[in-house]
Structures are given as C-alpha cells and as structure tokens.
C-alpha cells in the first residue's frame, strides 16, 4: 500500500508492473507496458500532477485491500484471468481513478520511441517538421458548386 505521501512501496511497484502488463500486453517484439520499464516515468509524472498521483494511490490501495485477492495470496499470486477480474472490479468501483491510471499508462507507453517505431509514427517533437500535404485542389468543389445558394433570408 502506498505511503500517505503517495510514494510507492516495493510491493506496490511489483503489483503495478504486472497491472501494466495486463493493461497493455506484449505485442510483436515489444514487452508489455510493465516489463518495458515505464513505471519510473509514471511515478515521475504522478509526482508532478496531483490528479494522477491521487488516482494511482487509490488504485493501488484498492488492489491491496481487496479481500478476495488477499485470500488468494495477493495480486501477484493470481492467474492472468483473475488479475484482469481484480482490475475490472476496481475499474467499476473507482471509475474516475481508474480512468486516470489508464490514461497515464497509455500516455507513457505511447510516448516511447520503440512503440512509435512499431506503429509507424515519427517519434520526437512535431515541430519544426510538421507534415506535407498536397495543396488545395479546387476540382473537388465541382459537385457542390452546382448547388444554388440556399441560405435563409431574414428580416432586417
């Protein structure tokens, strides 16, 4: 369980890495989000943004205080399906907090260069390169230009 200040314990970190692997599983030659080593980044973001920090703490609190999970020997002792079930229960009971946790995990994962390489996204800042598009071609207006003006007249 996280401390009152929100710092994660070693146990929290182990749990969270597994949670992250369940949220974003391995694909092709990429490991899941937890095994990828994103937790440090997530903790850093959470330390700067209260919304994420509070949600992460509540989420991990809920995970460790779930009696049914504890009865099975803790979250790490569960099967993959049981872990998903435990996560899903928190998603339902703490929907806002879970949404924030999912958001920060997604942002961290989809900001990684190795993920960008896999999905075909040019990594790094968008500027100053931007993207090149062909200029506007008026011929696309050929059909709609045949239409008579239809704006509605109004009294003065």
């Amino acid at each position: 369980m996280p401390t009152k200040q929100g710092a994660l314990t070693d146990s929290d970190r182990r749990n969270m890495r597994v949670v992250m692997d369940r949220l974003i599983p391995p694909v092709d030659d990429l490991p899941g989000a937890g095994t990828m080593g994103l937790l440090d980044e997530i903790e850093r973001i959470a330390s700067e943004h209260d919304r994420y920090r509070k949600s992460l703490v509540r989420f991990l609190d809920a995970l460790t205080m779930d009696m049914s999970v504890e009865a099975e020997g803790g979250f790490l002792a569960l099967s993959g399906e049981q872990q998903d079930e435990a996560i899903r229960e928190i998603e339902e009971s703490l929907s806002k907090e879970f949404a924030n946790v999912l958001e920060v995990v997604y942002i961290s994962y989809y900001s990684r260069p190795e993920v960008h390489a896999r999905i075909g996204w040019r990594t790094g800042p968008l500027q100053p390169l931007g993207f090149t598009l062909p200029p506007f071609d008026e011929s696309i207006l050929d059909t709609v230009r045949k239409r008579e003006p239809f704006w509605r007249q109004a009294p003065d």
Binding site: R22, I24, P25, L102, E103
Partner: peptide, 18 residues
C-alpha cells in the same frame, strides 16, 4: 497522435488487455 488515440479522441479509450 498515438497517446491521444489510445486515451480516446471523443470516444472511449482503446480497451485494455486482450
């Protein structure tokens, strides 16, 4: 971009897990 796509641009986030 990729992160906004995952978190959901005007629709629900991409589902997690399988």
């Amino acid at each position: 971009g990729p992160a906004k796509t995952a978190t959901g641009l005007a629709i629900s986030p991409v589902k997690w897990g399988e």
